[in-house]
Every structure is written in structure tokens, then in C-alpha cells.
Design a protein around this nucleic acid. Structure first.
Length: 888
RNA sequence: GGGCGAAUAGCUCAGCGGUUCAGAGCGCCUGCCUUACACGCAGGAAGUCGGGGGUUCGAAUCCCUCUUCGCCCACCA
């Protein structure tokens, strides 16, 4: 009698939350006290973030890995947390207060920062709570935030150490400036985008020249107001006469020198270039070389402003409005030679998408070369591995050409830069503790107003989260970590820098493998984003299909490192497969559980050789699945692991084994006991193998298996062990023949439209004696699966019916008196014969090809010979059938 | 301008040198509510593996080239 009443459909919502609670209560996600550690640090989401599909993929991937290793007995630590995300978070709160009609300047620094904290306290755990919904098995007791006091100490320590090592310096140069966020950005934070723009050719009047003007080409005419020279290449004959002359800067109407500089490419534009040292990085270099003035002609928010260079008509205009107006003025004055369409790159702020303005300013930089060297070496020596490997080239290229890192941001939200200046004696230094007075002269001190780049704190994540610079037990135990899982989009921002920080400050790699999955995109291969409205809310998916369905699609839907393509307009197609599979699993469980006694005898208590073929076969298949799934997991081929489980559960266990043993189970006799034992064992193994991918439903079912202790959890149960000596290809082949017989009969049934309820009579003629024994032993299985009322072997009287012939020449006859259409049967069989003959012909050609026989490996040749023999038998059998039917 | 990736069934993708290798899921067609499951069962149809060339006894699978998409990097304004 059934021990459980389970509904016929799996209801994820009824089980997910309680199970998660149970895992938490049991401390299942805390690393076990003993055992070799396995550590994944979670890429910390922005503290204001809500879960999107990209993170969903990232997190589920990590969860699969951590659950797998946890089951394998490792002291598995998945360390969660959030990032304060300087610009992003400040923007969010600025928008909030904008609704009250205020700016951060109205509030003042202190109040604004307090406001951000209030917001973070209120909403900062949202995304972490969402992770629980999708089943993330992180150790919440070790949750970190990049602005935690301990973490901040690490950030400050790192800054001071780099300062002491002379790797931090103040740079006066042209950096990327976001006029909307009002801060400088690193090179990485200014994303390039190709646009269809224009190239403006502008005439700069020249008094003493042979020609009345020199023409320059530019994509940003508005910067003309900041020009302090015109430059040409020193080797450019065309302009030799101009060098040393003075041009008249249009609109501003001031003299500027025409000079020669190597940086100018003669082939581009006119070969003459306007030089705007304060608003262009190359021009800045030219300016330095020629000691040019470097006037800023724009405000921080991108409006034109300069006491002498910006005329009233242009003052205060936004840079793009100013561009149009300046072009108009130039046109009016005949100074605009031409305008060409021109495809070029602009840089955009990665947080707000504004076009970034190159701007001369003072910023703090980190010298990166010394940091990059060990990180590069670690990759080259294989100490750190990138998966997929192809990212190695990108990583190397970036490291080899690394540029100094601008780490100061003109924001209020973040780690304040610990550089202090004495108001009295100008002494400047970095300090671990806030100083009360200047250590040199005792004068009052001022702290640098800027904060650090967010990534300057997150690059310490693998060890700052473990208590560094304190020598904590966690740090000793869990550093270095093992696997980092992330998307390739933050390879430079984060991954590369973590590696550098690890070697610099811990003298050891932060992790051994970086696994980079792909990006989540829609069916048009566009990245999912809020602005495109093509996103999928993972929580919607959980609501509609359950967390396991979401996880299934995220894992089974992508191969190693490839993008995940999802259709936001068709969630059903996208996520139903996972739900359906969960439901299938549920119902297999429902059936098996209804059949199992308490307790179930262990499989080991049965003599292997006495188990029926089907039992030995499914046990072997289970074992094979264990081997394959384990191997796939180890290689990050998570999709293969998931699909292998699917095949075993659905294709082998449900479609064949469960159906095959139903009669035995129904008999309730001694035959049933073995079947029960085998079912229990196989199902248990399947649940274990599937648990990392679909933790909820597997735990729920596993709990119901007989013999479960009250406090046992699948989440911390051992991973099944693969037994290489149980692999048996012969066994598989034998059962394959059984399957083929069944399928042959089913196919005949369908072709002759025999109603499912009609029981047929069939006769098998086996090719070899062994095979006959197999068929006889599995007679009941075949009868049931093929819906037969009678199955006989060999010899019976010739009757009218249909035949199917198999690879080894065995054949099955299905009696179809009255129903048989001889013509049709002839066509069917001769079709098969033709196909077989063609195959044989090809094979024969291959085998008579001396080149093949001589050069191909002997075992391949032998295999082909064997194949030929079997096919000949099959052909013979088919030909006989045709003859006996009287086909012409 | 460099570098990388992708192109296989209507859709999303596996397969990446040799077992009937041309596959899976979804979709489609034909039967079935066969007492675990219609989120299911059984049986089918469906692709000259982007084009061309080459290497090899043998090529979706390796090499070259072209085409089309996508991504990353680069101070020719």
C-alpha cells in the first residue's frame, strides 16, 4: 500500500521555501569542519540590484558547482555578499532625491551619504533574499559588504601599502570624465562604441602663409575653443612652410602656433590637426612636448565656459548644442570647408551611457606594470586557468598592455581616499588611521575629498571577505580559493585585478580556475537589458515554473562558455522543459515510492548473476551515468551533466526499466523484491546526480525514500561513486536487442493501425543461442512493452504477418491475419533491404579499398568487417522474408 | 586596424577525425486519458551540417579562403 499520497503534479511552491529553511536550519551551507576546502566567492551584486537573468545564470552555475563539491565531501564555502557600487548606487539615490526636487549638493556630503546608507539598509538585502528563492546555497553567516568596517580596513591597508611602495601617484592628465555622473572614470569604465558621426574640416586663417588658411579635421568642433596650437607631422612636405607660423583660432580669434609633432598622422584628414591639450589625451601629450597652455573650456557638467575663450553666444551651452552653433558660425564665416560622414568611436560612461568627455584633471593612479607581471606569469605557468581557454589571449593582451589605473572618483559614496594634506606645510601622506594633525608640523589636516573606484575595493574580494589583513582562521583555511564563476564582461574590471591583488598582497593566487559563462541574450542575440525591455525576471520564472525549472534552463541551455539565448516573449517554450522534467521526476518518484516496502533490501543482498537482464542493465546504466555526470561536472560541462541525468532518468529508467518491471512488481512475489531494490538504488542515484542542478525537487523526493533518518539531507549526502569495473558493453547490447524487438513490434503496430488495445501475437527468431536465451528470459518484458498476448520462439508454422529484422539478423514476426496488406509489407521490407544494400555497398567499397585496409587502425578495420558480417545476415534475413511473402 | 567567437532540422542548441553520426529539446504529423506522469505514452516527417578549395584511407568534425552575424581591444583627431 502506498506510504505517501502525492499529487499527480509537482508543486514547486509548496516545497521550495520550507526546504530552503530546512537547509538553513541544518547549517547545510556552512562548510563542514573537516575535509579539504572548496571555495567560491560570489561576484558581489550591486547592493541596490535586483536579480536579473544574467546573475541568475551566474549564481545557478556557482550553486551547481558548490553543491557538487559539497556532496563530494569538500568543505564547501560559497561566500556571498554585495558591492557598494559607487557610481551606480549614488545615481540611484540621486534620482530618489531628485524626486524631492533636490540635488546631493543641497543635502551636503554628510547628509547625502547618510541618505544612501539609509537606502542601503532598507533595500540592500533584496538581491540576497532573491538568491535564496532560486536555491543558492551560500554561507549566509559569512556575508560581506564592501563597505563593512572590516572590509574597509582592508581597502585602506591596500591603499597605504601601495602608497608606501610608491605605486600610487597623483597624475595630472586627460582622463575620461562623465559630465552626467560628474566623476572621472577608468579606461575600462569608458566603453567604446562605434557611431556614424561627422568629420568637420575647419579652416584656421594664417596671415603670413602662401595659403590664407590651414585646414584641420575634427569630430568635435566645440573643442576648438580650447585649442592652443595646430600640429602637423614634421615630415609632411605639404605643411613644411607652415611650421613656425601662427594661425588664427576661429571664433576665439587668438593667435596659436603651427608646430610639428610626430603624433600627427599625415594620411588622416588634412594632415593638420587642431591641438586641444585639456580635452584630448593625444593633444595633451603634444601640449606637454611643446609646453602649450592647456585651458579647460568646459564645466564639469559639459557646458562651454571660459573667461576669455568662450564668447557670450556660446557660454553655458551644452557641448553638443555648442557644436552645432559653432559649426553654424564657421559656415557663416566661410571657415567650414566641408563635412564628411565619418564612422568613429566614442566612449560612453558604463553607468549612464553619456558620451564621456576627455578632461584634464588631477587624479590618483596606480602603477600597474609591477602588479601585472605576477598575474601574467600565473596565467602563463598554468597556475591560473581560464575556462574556456580562449579567454587567455584576451587576458594576456590586456595584461601585457596594461595602463595605469585611475582610482579616484569625484563621488561621495564609497571609500574615502586616505590621503591627507597639511594645510600649513603642504605635507601629503596616506594613513591607516585618520590623523588629528600633521605629523611633521602639527598643523591642521585635510583629507582628499574623492572616493576610490568601486573596483578598488572589489579587487580584494577573495581575501578581504575572509578578514584580511587580520590573520583570521577563515583566511588561513579558505585562501586561496578554487573556482571563480563570472561573465567575460568583467574580466578586466574585476577578474584580472583580483588576480593581481592576490599575488601582490597574499603572494598567492585568489583562485585556480576562472570559469566564464556566456551572456544572457534574447532571440535576436541582444543582451538583455532594462532599456531594451527584453529582460526576463527570474522571479517571474520561479513563480510560473518553479526554481528548478529556471535552474534547468540556465544549466542545460548552455554549453561551455556559450551565450544563453532565451525568449522573453515565450517563457513557456523557454522554461517548460525544466518544469516538465521536474514533473516527470516527480511522477517516477510517485510510482517508485508507491512500490517500495520499508525497509528496502539493498541491491547487494542479491546475487548479481541471478538478477534479470533488465535489472543488471539499469544498474549498469546508472553506474555509467555516475561516471559521465561526474566527469562532465569536473570539466564544467554542466549542460552535459544535466542532459546525461535527463537521459538516464527519462530515457532509461522511466521509459524502459519502470515499464519493464511493472509485471514483476505487480506479482508481489520474490521477483518483486529485486525490482524494488533496483528501483530504489537507481532512483537514489539519480536524485543525487541531479541534486546540484535541481536541488528542490530532488531533496523533496529523496526525503521520502525509505530508510531516511529524520535529519538526513540530500544537500549534504555523498555523491555516488563510479565503479569502473561494472561497465559492461555486452550487457547494454543484449538489452538493446530487447528494446529493438519491442520497437520493431510497436512500429509494425503503428504502420498497420492496430489499435493499442489489441493484443498481438509475435514470434522471435534469434540469431545466436545466447541471444535466444536473452529473449526468452525477457519474454515477459517484451510481452508487456509491446502489448503482446503471446510470444513464441523460432520454428512456429508460417503465417501471414509482418516482419522486422535487426542488426544481427534476428527477426521478429507479428501475426496479422486479415490485417496484413502484402503489397504494403513488400514495399516496407524491400525499402529496408534497399537501404541496407546501399549501406553494404558503401561498406564493401571501404573494405576493398587497399588504402583503408592498410592505413586505418586495425581495430577500426576489424570493426568494419564485423559490421559487414552482421549486415549480411540482416540482408539475408530480409531477402528470405520477401521471398516467403511472395514479393516480386 | 588587430584579435576572438558563431553559422548543423521551422526555433534554441549538442556533436568537433572512424561504432547505422546526421542528434536532443521545443514545434509539426498520426494514434492513444495503457491505474506514475496528457507538464504524459507510442509511432512518424523533417537538415546536400553557410559557400568554395585543401589535408586524409576516412571530415559537421582538421587547414585555407569567402560570405553573414556577434563580441573584445586599439590615441589617426
Amino acid at each position: 500500500m502506498p506510504r505517501f499520497e502525492l499529487s499527480s503534479q509537482y508543486d514547486p511552491h509548496a516545497v521550495e521555501r520550507p526546504l530552503y529553511e530546512r537547509w538553513l536550519d541544518a547549517g547545510a551551507f556552512t562548510p563542514r569542519a573537516d575535509g579539504k576546502p572548496y571555495v567560491i566567492v560570489m561576484p558581489p551584486p550591486n547592493v541596490t540590484a535586483v536579480l536579473h537573468m544574467g546573475q541568475g545564470l551566474d549564481m545557478v552555475t556557482q550553486d551547481v558547482l558548490i553543491r557538487f563539491e559539497r556532496m563530494r565531501g569538500r568543505a564547501a564555502l560559497w561566500l556571498p555578499g554585495t558591492d557598494h557600487a559607487g557610481i551606480a548606487t549614488q545615481n540611484v539615490v540621486e534620482r530618489l532625491i531628485a524626486k524631492e526636487g533636490k540635488t546631493r549638493f543641497d543635502l551636503g556630503r554628510e547628509q547625502f551619504v547618510e541618505r544612501v546608507w539609509a537606502f542601503v539598509r532598507e533595500t540592500g538585502t533584496t538581491i540576497l533574499e532573491q538568491l535564496k528563492i532560486i536555491g543558492a546555497s551560500c554561507d549566509w553567516s559569512r556575508r560581506r559588504f564592501t563597505l563593512d568596517p572590516e572590509y574597509s580596513r582592508a581597502v585602506r591597508e591596500v591603499f597605504v601599502r601601495l602608497w608606501e611602495d610608491k605605486l600610487i601617484y597623483r597624475g595630472h592628465r586627460v582622463i575620461h570624465w562623465c559630465p552626467r555622473c560628474l566623476t572621472s572614470l577608468s579606461d575600462e569604465e569608458a566603453e567604446s562604441e562605434e557611431i556614424d558621426g561627422k568629420l568637420y574640416y575647419i579652416r584656421y586663417p594664417v596671415k603670413e602663409g602662401r595659403k590664407p588658411y590651414i585646414t584641420v579635421a575634427t569630430t568635435r568642433p566645440e573643442t576648438l575653443l580650447g585649442d592652443t596650437a595646430v600640429a602637423v607631422n614634421p615630415n609632411d612636405e605639404r605643411y613644411r612652410a607652415f611650421v613656425g607660423k601662427v594661425a588664427r583660432l576661429p571664433i576665439v580669434d587668438i593667435p596659436i602656433p603651427i608646430l610639428a609633432d610626430q603624433a600627427v598622422v599625415p594620411e588622416f584628414g588634412t594632415g593638420a590637426v587642431k591641438v586641444t591639450p585639456a580635452h584630448d589625451a593625444t593633444d595633451f601629450e603634444i601640449g606637454l612636448r611643446h609646453k602649450l597652455e592647456m585651458p579647460l573650456v568646459m564645466t564639469e557638467d559639459g557646458r562651454m565656459e571660459h573667461p576669455t575663450r568662450v564668447p557670450k553666444a556660446l557660454a553655458d551651452l551644452d557641448r553638443f548644442d555648442a557644436r552645432e552653433k559653432i559649426v553654424d558660425i564657421l559656415k557663416e564665416r566661410g571657415l567650414l570647408e566641408k563635412v564628411e560622414p565619418y564612422r568613429h568611436v566614442v566612449r560612453r560612461c558604463y553607468r549612464c551611457d553619456s558620451v564621456v568627455e576627455p578632461r584634464l584633471s588631477d587624479q590618483w593612479f596606480v602603477k600597474m606594470k609591477p602588479l601585472a607581471e605576477p598575474a601574467l606569469e600565473a596565467y602563463r605557468s598554468g597556475e591560473i586557468r581560464l575556462v574556456p581557454e580562449r579567454w587567455g589571449a584576451t587576458y594576456q593582451h590586456w595584461m601585457e598592455n596594461i595602463r595605469d589605473w585611475n582610482i579616484s572618483r569625484q563621488l561621495w559614496w564609497g571609500h574615502r581616499i586616505p590621503v591627507f594634506t597639511c594645510v600649513k606645510c603642504d605635507h601629503e601622506w596616506a594613513a591607516r588611521e585618520d590623523p588629528a594633525a600633521c605629523p611633521k608640523c602639527g598643523g591642521p589636516v585635510q583629507q582628499d575629498p574623492d572616493v576610490l573606484d568601486t573596483w578598488f575595493s572589489s579587487w580584494l574580494w577573495p581575501f578581504a571577505t575572509l578578514g584580511w589583513p587580520q590573520e583570521t582562521p577563515d583566511l588561513q583555511r579558505f585562501y586561496p580559493g578554487h573556482t571563480l564563476v563570472t561573465g567575460p564582461d568583467i574580466l578586466f574590471f574585476w577578474v584580472a585585478r583580483m588576480i593581481m591583488a592576490g599575488y601582490r598582497f597574499l603572494k598567492d593566487e585568489p583562485f585556480e580556475t576562472v570559469y566564464m559563462h556566456g551572456i544572457v541574450r534574447d532571440t535576436q542575440h541582444r543582451k538583455m537589458s532594462k532599456s531594451l525591455g527584453n529582460g526576463i525576471d527570474p522571479l517571474d520564472v520561479v513563480r510560473l515554473y518553479g526554481a528548478d525549472a529556471l535552474r534547468w534552463t540556465a544549466i542545460a541551455g548552455v554549453s561551455l562558455g556559450s551565450d544563453l539565448i532565451l525568449d522573453p516573449k515565450d517563457l513557456e517554450t523557454t522554461f517548460a522543459p525544466g518544469r516538465n522534467f521536474a514533473n516527470k521526476l516527480w511522477n517516477i518518484g510517485r510510482f517508485i515510492l508507491s512500490q517500495l516496502p520499508e525497509p528496502v533490501q539493498p541491491v547487494e543482498s542479491f546475487e548479481w548473476s541471478e538478477l534479470p537482464l533488465a535489472d543488471r542493465w539499469i544498474l549498469m546504466r546508472a553506474n555509467e551515468a555516475v561516471g559521465a555526470v561526474t566527469a562532465s561536472m569536473e570539466q564544467f560541462r554542466l549542460d552535459e551533466a544535466a542532459k546525461r541525468c535527463y537521459e538516464f532518468v527519462w530515457g532509461d529508467l522511466a521509459d524502459w526499466y519502470v515499464e519493464a518491471v511493472k509485471p514483476r512488481l505487480a506479482s508481489r512475489g520474490s521477483d518483486a523484491a529485486a525490482a524494488q531494490a533496483v528501483l530504489a538504488q537507481c532512483f537514489d542515484a539519480a536524485l543525487r546526480l541531479l541534486h546540484p542542478v535541481v536541488p528542490f525537487i530532488t531533496e523533496e523526493l529523496w526525503q521520502k525514500l525509505p530508510g531516511r533518518a529524520a535529519n538526513e539531507l540530500l544537500a549534504v549526502a555523498p555523491w555516488p561513486a563510479f565503479q569502473p569495473d561494472c561497465v559492461d558493453a555486452e550487457l547494454d547490447l543484449q538489452f538493446l536487442r530487447v528494446k529493438q524487438v519491442v520497437e520493431g513490434i510497436r512500429s509494425i503496430r503503428a504502420q498497420y493501425n492496430v489499435p493499442p488495445k489489441t493484443r498481438l501475437r509475435a514470434r522471435i527468431t534469434a540469431r545466436g543461442r545466447d541471444q535466444r536465451k536473452v529473449f526468452e528470459a525477457e519474454r515477459e518484458t517484451i510481452q508487456r512493452l509491446a502489448q503482446l498476448e503471446d510470444l513464441s520462439f523460432d520454428g512456429g508454422a508460417k503465417r501471414v504477418g509482418a516482419y522486422a529484422v535487426f542488426g544481427d539478423g534476428s527477426e521478429v514476426f507479428v501475426a496479422l491475419e486479415g490485417a496484413i496488406d502484402v503489397q504494403h509489407e513488400c514495399r516496407r521490407l524491400s525499402g529496408e533491404l534497399t537501404r541496407l544494400e546501399q549501406q553494404l555497398e558503401r561498406l564493401a567499397a571501404k573494405l576493398t579499398n587497399q588504402q583503408f585496409v592498410a592505413r586505418a587502425p586495425a581495430e577500426v578495420v576489424a570493426g568494419e568487417r564485423e559490421k559487414e558480417r552482421a549486415w549480411r545476415d540482416q540482408r539475408q534475413a530480409l531477402a528470405d522474408k520477401l521471398k516467403s511473402l511472395g514479393c516480386s
